[in-house]
Design a protein around this nucleic acid. Sequence first.
DNA 1: GACCAGGCACATC
DNA 2: GATGTGCATGGT
Length: 214
Amino acid sequence: MEPLKDYYRALLDRFGPQGWWPGETRFEVMVGAILTQNTAWKNVEKAIGTLRTYGLLDPHKIHETDQDTLALAIKPAGYFNVKAKRLKAFADWLVTKHHADAEKLTQIPLDRLREELLEIKGIGPETADSILLYALDFPTFVVDAYTYRVLTRHNLIGEEATYEDMKDLFERNLGRDRELFGEFHALIVAVGKKFCRATARCEECPLRRFLPGK
DNA sequence: GACCAGGCACATC
DNA sequence: GATGTGCATGGT
């Protein structure tokens, strides 16, 4: 059977609860999900701080603010021109299609909302799932580059695995549990940063005992 | 001074 | 359909 639950316990024992996602409002978490694309969270914090200072952590404000002004505000998060455009595309969607009401999004069926998010330019599968899970409390699993490394290095999935393959693996074997999904993904990032980077450093990894051949 | 980070869209073959 | 490339700051 899949030992994923054992992986989870080992990670939780080692790192403790991660408490993801930091953010005061649903909208702030959604903004963070876009800003953190391929970017260290530390840089995102600065950008969010600036947005907060200028009162821009609000869908209407982002909808109204021009892209260049937005880009300047989020500069520390990197890719600032790209991300300014993506933030606006997202805010435009939220304002025009959903009355800027993040709370109401939680009432939409998960699959339908996920499709809608994926149609927005700049929202791919990981960002969509991060928004659904961490901002809106839907039980959907978030996959990232670390997830791929851990799963492939442990032979839990083939090298050719797609995002959906990995997502399904977790969702089928764990049952749809929002709290579990939220902690598990955060723990995978934690272990990934420390032990599962481009070059694996398995010596002190808490998942070492699960390695094939161990 | 490389290398990397809580990705994604788009061009080209 | 697969593979390659641009986007950019800040920490190690």
